[in-house]
């Protein structure tokens, strides 16, 4: 493999990391409050707003139904409005974030719903406001589940990022298609796949390690 190709692989890896990192960050920024709201807004719950819960639930489901590759091209005008361009790595962050947000919201909702209702009752009995209950009880108690959920989201985003080549998003997936497939360079394809495998393994291991670190529910892994 030539030095030129190695340079291409290196650049593509950085592009993928950049797209995934920024879209995961933005997806969490939007998805976390959305997920918390979905988990606490059914009738009789902490932030009871059943109508909004239903509407946002439908929107989230609709967004998650759209195949990612279609989402990427369908929202090109929106992407251009947000990013100033519809082509390139930065532009690709827009559809990635839009796909990540509802996904993360559902993962957050599931993690929050795992928290024992008795803890919410205890916090209410202390005179906590709904916001205090969310900040001091629900999110800290759901943290191990939240970390694992975000890990899953990042791994999914690494997969999605391979499709943004369709709008000139570049990155590893795009490199694999253009060189490995269209130019018949199987060594490039192999290299791309190996890098992606390593990336996913690292993300998954790191996520599980952090989740264990923040999980105080069982007296294990505390160094004896």
């Amino acid at each position: 493999m030539s030095a030129n190709l190695i340079g291409l692989l290196y650049d593509a890896t950085l592009q993928t990391l950049y797209m995934v990192a920024v879209s995961a960050l933005l997806g969490t920024l939007f998805g976390l409050p959305l997920g918390v709201f979905l988990a606490t807004s059914q009738r009789g719950e902490l932030m009871s707003a059943p109508w909004w819960n239903t509407v946002l639930g439908l929107v989230v489901n609709a967004a998650r139904s759209i195949p990612f590759i279609i989402l990427v091209v369908a929202i090109i005008p929106f992407t251009r409005w947000v990013a100033g361009t519809s082509i390139g790595t930065t532009a690709a962050i827009v559809p990635l974030t839009l796909a990540a947000t509802p996904f993360i919201a559902r993962l957050v909702e599931n993690a929050i719903r795992e928290v024992d209702a008795g803890l919410i009752e205890a916090a209410r009995a202390m005179g906590a406001t709904p916001v205090q209950i969310i900040r001091k009880v629900l999110i800290p108690e759901a943290l191990p589940g939240l970390v694992l959920g975000l890990t899953l989201a990042v791994v999914s985003l690494i997969g999605y990022s391979a499709m943004v080549g369709a709008v000139g998003g570049e990155g590893l997936g795009d490199l694999g298609i253009r060189y490995g497939y269209q130019r018949f360079m199987p060594d490039v394809m192999l290299a791309v796949v190996v890098i992606l495998i390593v990336m996913v393994q690292l993300v998954q291991s790191a996520g599980e390690w952090i989740a264990r670190l923040v999980d105080k529910r069982a007296p294990r892994n505390r160094g004896g």
Partner: peptide, 9 residues
């Protein structure tokens, strides 16, 4: 409470 309802975290 019967089941204590302490925060595990």
């Amino acid at each position: 409470f019967q089941h204590f309802n302490l925060l595990a975290s």
